[in-house]
């Protein structure tokens, strides 16, 4: 219960860190959506790019997060500010679920439906926007959901490079060997992850065909 007291006493700072955390997650997820969905669509159109793109996204996913921050540090403009660095790293991690789900979603649309559309003289553009994307929206949103939940967890590590967020409390608590402080960061982060999972899960269900 002392944790609650700590949170209540420091609620302005807890809120501030929560918003910082949310900001990192929202910006990086939005970037991953903007880059990942077109890439996912691209590899359904250019099968040759399929292996390299998914392979690269996979490799990024296997780099430990602290190491990724370190790798990106020398990058110009990005490396100059901790929050930019954190956002880029989080974006890179979120790419794989975005690309993969977009690709799988489109590829799993019933062949017969695609064939009917093409046979009736729909252009590739019409087929994509009127048939393939609407029918794979549920799977694509599932990708956004996975990416967001992963990102809420990973964003705690951003505090290690001074990018802020709820990780601040976790690292501070670890240094002070103080569970209260750790939990003041971990509990709001867990709640954020649950809320994102629930909200996007609901969206996914309502967008899935049938």
């Amino acid at each position: 219960m002392q944790t609650w007291q700590f949170i209540v006493q420091n609620y302005t700072q807890v809120l501030e860190l929560t918003f910082e955390h949310l900001w990192l997650v929202l910006v990086s997820t939005a970037l991953a959506v903007v880059v990942g969905i077109p890439l996912g669509i691209l590899i359904t159109r250019r099968p040759l790019l399929n292996k390299p793109v998914l392979g690269l996204a996979n490799v990024i996913q296997t780099i430990p997060s602290l190491a990724l921050f370190g790798i990106l540090l020398p990058a110009p403009w990005i490396g100059a500010r901790a929050d930019r660095l954190a956002i880029l790293a989080l974006t890179l991690y979120a790419l794989l679920p975005m690309i993969r789900n977009t690709y799988v979603g489109i590829k799993s649309v019933d062949r017969a439906i695609i064939e009917a559309g093409r046979g009736m003289g729909m252009t590739d553009h019409q087929l994509l926007w009127q048939v393939e994307l609407p029918l794979s929206l549920g799977v694509i949103v599932a990708g956004v959901r996975v990416a967001t939940v992963i990102s809420v967890g990973l964003a705690t590590i951003a505090a290690a490079i001074g990018a802020g967020g709820l990780g601040e409390y976790i690292f501070r608590g670890l240094a002070m060997v103080n569970n209260q402080v750790i939990l003041a960061g971990a509990i709001p982060a867990a709640l954020l992850a649950l809320a994102a999972d629930f909200g996007l899960g609901w969206l996914e269900k309502s967008l899935s065909p049938r």
Binding site: I113, A116, G117, M120, G121
Partner: peptide
């Protein structure tokens, strides 16, 4: 070419997310 050839495919292949009206009125 395809728009001047009506095509009824073996598996029917209606668009599940369209109403009957939109399906028929597609072309």
């Amino acid at each position: 070419l395809r728009r001047m050839i009506g095509y009824v495919i073996q598996e029917v292949g209606l668009f599940p997310h369209f109403t009957v009206e939109r399906n028929i009125g597609l072309v």
